Computed example of a mutant assay.
Amino acid sequence: MSMSQAGSAARGSVKRDAVVEAATRAFLTHGYEASSMDAIAADANVSKRTVYNHFPGKRELFQAVVSGLYKDFQSDGGQSLLRHEQPPEQALPVFLRSLLAHMGRPEVRGLLRLVIAEHQRFPELSQDYLEGGKSQAYALLDSYIAAQHTRGRLNAPEPHVVATQLLGGMKEVLFWPTMLGLTITADPERVIADSVAALIRTYGTAPLSGSAGSKG
């Protein structure tokens, strides 16, 4: 690639990022249906043609917004959040803290509210959210649990079932109340520790060896 081509690609990437950022603001402020490609182009300070050069339509732009919000959990970079060589009592609390911080972001909560509010008219948004967002975090956890089963640390032949139980229990206490505007009274660290300890008690093949069970 020549220097001029590299420079052009870099400028294209900057413009694409600006469009995705503008779309994120538009969708979370005005909703999906009320956000126009014209307004998004104007906010990004690019032409409408530039927007369509990167995104054929509004759905593709929405998919890019979801992907951008969940980029930390995508497989190419998310492996650092769950190190397979570490046992569950070490690796899982780190992952759960990262996931909890992610779910606490206003943009992430806003995205889910958007999907819930508009799924009757645009059911495809639910699919895009699940495939491009939520499933990324689950895939990381599924892969980790499967690896621990292979290593003999967990007896978990159905990793997704275990992942669902772990995340479902934590979210029920620490996430879903915030979606209803309720105040969280539970200590997140205690919830995480208890959740990990419960998983190891149920699926572990050896006694607890780390800090996850020390608070329980």
Rank of each mutant, 00 (worst) to 15 (best):
G204M: 02
L174V: 11
R121T: 09
I184K: 10
P188K: 05
E85S: 15
L154G: 02
I200K: 09
S195D: 01
A42R: 13
I145H: 01
L100Q: 07
D128G: 09
V19W: 06
V66C: 04
Y138F: 15
Y144Q: 01
I145W: 00
M170Q: 12
P157N: 01
L208Y: 09
S214P: 03
E189H: 03
A156C: 04
S211D: 13
P159L: 02
I40F: 07
Q86R: 15
V161C: 07
S211M: 14
Y52N: 01
D17S: 15
V191H: 05
M3Q: 11
V66H: 03
A23K: 04
Q120G: 10
A212H: 04
S2W: 03
T205N: 10
K134G: 14
V191E: 08
I192W: 08
L92M: 09
L96T: 00
G204P: 07
L199P: 01
F55V: 06
A18H: 13
A10E: 14
P123W: 02
G168F: 04
V19E: 08
S195Q: 00
L82R: 05
F55K: 02
P93C: 05
L114G: 03
T205Q: 08
D72I: 04
R153F: 13
T183R: 14
K215Y: 13
G78E: 05
D72R: 07
V191C: 04
F55Q: 00
T202Y: 10
V196F: 01
F95H: 08
A146L: 00
G104K: 04
G169Y: 00
S36W: 02
G31W: 07
E33A: 15
G210K: 03
T164Y: 10
H84L: 14
A146C: 02
I116C: 09
L174N: 11
H102Q: 06
L99F: 13
T185G: 11
F122W: 08
S211Y: 13
R190H: 11
H84Q: 15
L99H: 13
L114N: 06
T150E: 15
D128Q: 13
T205C: 11
E60W: 04
G77K: 12
G169I: 05
F175N: 10
A91Q: 05
T202F: 10
L141S: 02
A41M: 08
F95T: 08
R121L: 11
S135D: 15
T205Y: 05
P159S: 03
A64E: 03
A64I: 05
T150M: 14
S2L: 11
D38S: 14
D76L: 10
D43L: 09
A163L: 03
N53D: 14
L180M: 13
Y203C: 08
A186E: 10
A147V: 04
S13V: 11
R11F: 12
E158Q: 11
A193I: 07
R113Y: 07
V94E: 13
D38C: 08
V46W: 02
R83E: 12
P56C: 02
Y144C: 03
M3N: 11
A156F: 00
K48N: 09
A163K: 07
K71H: 12
Y129K: 07
P56V: 04
F27R: 03
A117E: 13
